[in-house]
């Protein structure tokens, strides 16, 4: 087992908990709104953005946020206007962003930049600073406040966007906020989890919660609980095995998802109903 200095241990633990919280709250939006392609592209855009930041010697977090947010805001209207299938959008954007990231990394001077870029690619406990934890804490406070204060609007939006609009919800503004918060969650978790893996932390905890609950309120509560649990377990797993932390967290969350699908009471009920029919 790796032994870490106490300060680093605290920073990394807090970072893991907050990354799990923010990503899995964003996951509830992403999974339900069926904007998985946007979340997927955002995580890779954030990676390309971080690589660009290293190239121009600007804080990679800022450029990651910029790339993720711009991609998110452009993607939906562009896909809609071009009438492209989401699979096609994923294919184009994923490859484009990875290509851009590799170009930026190739152009980045010195080995230090390459090392930093690799840490962004698969995440590292050592890459997380006190400032990153602070940003994540502020983001989590924003997300929890948003969900608490606007729960009924979020519920209406998640059920059906057209009906939400018909009932008087400003769906455009709420969608913008949801996409923006998702972009921030991806960007802030990038150093810890890694650009290639952060997307899994968005999808897996919510998908796990979906296997157990019929009530959206419970999904909204238990998705972050599962996300945080995955991150803590993944962090311990990483310390025990010396695996990268991002990979460890994703492996743990994927195992939880696989188990939940196998034992899901919702699926069991559905199977009995189907047999009866």
């Amino acid at each position: 087992m790796i032994s870490l200095p106490f300060a680093l241990l605290v920073t990394a633990t807090l970072g893991s908990i907050l990354a799990g919280l923010s990503c899995s709250i964003a996951g509830v939006f992403v999974v339900r709104l069926n904007i998985a392609s946007i979340g997927f592209c955002m995580s890779h855009a954030a990676f390309a953005g971080a690589a660009f930041g290293l190239l121009i010697e600007v804080d990679p977090l800022l450029t990651a946020m910029l790339f993720a947010s711009v991609t998110a805001l452009l993607l939906a209207p562009v896909a809609n206007r071009a009438k492209l299938n989401t699979d096609v959008v994923i294919g184009i954007m994923f490859s484009l962003m990875i290509a851009l990231a590799f170009v930026f990394l190739n152009l980045s001077p010195g080995e230090a930049a390459s090392g930093a870029a690799l840490r962004i690619l698969w995440g590292s406990i050592f890459a997380v600073s006190e400032y990153d934890v602070l940003y994540l804490a502020l983001l989590c406070a924003m997300m929890v406040s948003f969900v608490t204060l606007f729960y009924k609007e979020i519920f209406a939006l998640m059920f059906n966007q057209k009906l939400a609009k018909a009932a008087g919800v400003n769906t455009y503004v709420f969608m913008l906020i949801v996409v923006f918060l998702t972009g921030l969650a991806v960007s802030f978790s990038l150093k810890l989890i890694g650009g290639l893996l952060v997307y899994a932390l968005i999808i897996n905890p919510t998908s796990t919660a979906y296997q157990f609950f019929w009530d959206f309120r419970k999904i909204m509560v238990f998705s972050p609980v599962i996300g945080v649990a995955s991150c803590i377990a993944g962090f311990i797993f990483s310390l025990e095995t010396d695996f990268p932390i991002g990979a460890s967290i994703v492996i743990v969350s994927a195992i939880l998802l696989a188990i939940s699908i196998a034992i899901s009471p919702k699926r069991r009920t559905a199977k009995i109903a189907a047999q009866a029919a």
């Binding site: 009924k152 209406a156 939400a164 009932a167 008087g168 019929w214 919702k266």
Partner: peptide, 19 residues
């Protein structure tokens, strides 16, 4: 079929703008 929405909450969502 696995949507996590209870009927009473769906009906309440009609009152969102009113509230």
């Amino acid at each position: 079929p696995l949507s996590p929405f209870l009927c009473k909450n769906v009906v309440m969502s009609g009152r969102v703008g009113k509230i």
